[in-house]
């Protein structure tokens, strides 16, 4: 065991609570009796081997995908009655190109019947608190990839969700945009303290962003470890040279390698 690195068992009251989750796809079991507790107000990143069901898991946690058996509770209530913000991997396929960027961001409020003036107010407030400058009068396809993903993030935040889910939100972006959007996401998290769950395929990124790294096994999927990484925010890329970052990443990598060889 590496000094100063406690393997974590969450002591906090779980906010997302999963019990006995089963899910199979055409006879292939991905989850069987899967249990998970995730804390409130933390940013959890999910990392694991290909096909371990990272996206499947957050799709079930967010109520997008039905599961065969089990319970998912968010804040003590069934997931279907929770307010969810969800950012898809592919902004091009998840934004509505027939609407302007502003109408996209407004949509969750419009669906809830919030009047126009209130909607405007809320969006201006969002932009100001995250220091985002975006020309929202444009159509989404006129914006850069990073700006489009920001629109998708704002849209997920606008209706004040209880949990924000992000499915590999940077994988369709180039490196420069990834750094920018990642930075903005950190600002959002710092400002709101919103319970956030993010799927990543990049271990460095998973550790960099996380309070908790959820390391999953090959299917049938179980939790290998929920690793804590409590370095203060805002984090900059310099922390990647920090001993604690390196140790956490190495620990996760060792577990990951051991899992791959099983």
């Amino acid at each position: 065991m590496i000094a100063g690195l406690e393997p974590t068992v969450a002591l906090e009251e779980p906010f997302i609570r999963v019990r006995g989750l089963d899910k199979s796809f055409g006879g292939r079991t991905v989850f069987a009796g899967f249990d998970l507790d995730l804390p409130r107000g933390k940013l959890t990143t999910i990392f694991g081997p290909n096909g371990c069901g990272k996206s499947t898991l957050i799709n079930m946690l967010s109520g997008l995908l039905r599961f065969d058996a089990g319970d998912v509770e968010i804040g003590g209530r069934d997931v279907r009655s929770a307010r969810i913000g969800y950012v898809f991997q592919n902004y091009r396929e998840s934004l509505f190109p027939w609407m302007r960027a502003r109408e996209n961001v407004e949509y969750p409020l419009r669906v809830r019947g919030v009047p126009r003036a209130k909607r405007r107010e809320r969006i201006d407030e969002l932009l100001a608190s995250f220091e985002i400058t975006l020309d929202l009068s444009r159509h989404t396809y006129e914006l850069s990839g990073g700006q489009q993903q920001l629109v998708a993030i704002l849209r997920a935040l606008v209706a004040d969700p209880e949990v924000l889910f992000l499915d590999e939100p940077f994988s369709a972006l180039d490196y420069e945009m990834t750094l920018y959007v990642r930075d903005k996401l950190q600002t959002v998290f710092l400002e709101t303290g919103l319970t956030t769950v993010l799927v990543s395929h990049d271990l460095e990124e998973a550790v960099y962003l996380a309070d908790r790294i959820l390391l999953l096994s090959k299917p049938p999927t179980r939790v290998v470890e929920l690793i804590a990484y409590d370095t203060l925010r805002p984090r900059t890329t310099e922390i990647m040279a920090d001993a604690r970052f390196v140790a956490t990443k190495q620990h996760a990598l060792d577990l990951f390698r051991a899992e791959m060889q099983r």
Binding site: S62, G63, I84, Y86, S94, F96, V111, R155
Partner: peptide, 22 residues
Amino acid sequence: RKTRILAAKVMGASSVQVFRDV
């Protein structure tokens, strides 16, 4: 696109709204 329909649903759109808006 299935993703857009899912996006509308997760934002709380009813099936009528999904039909009309997406």
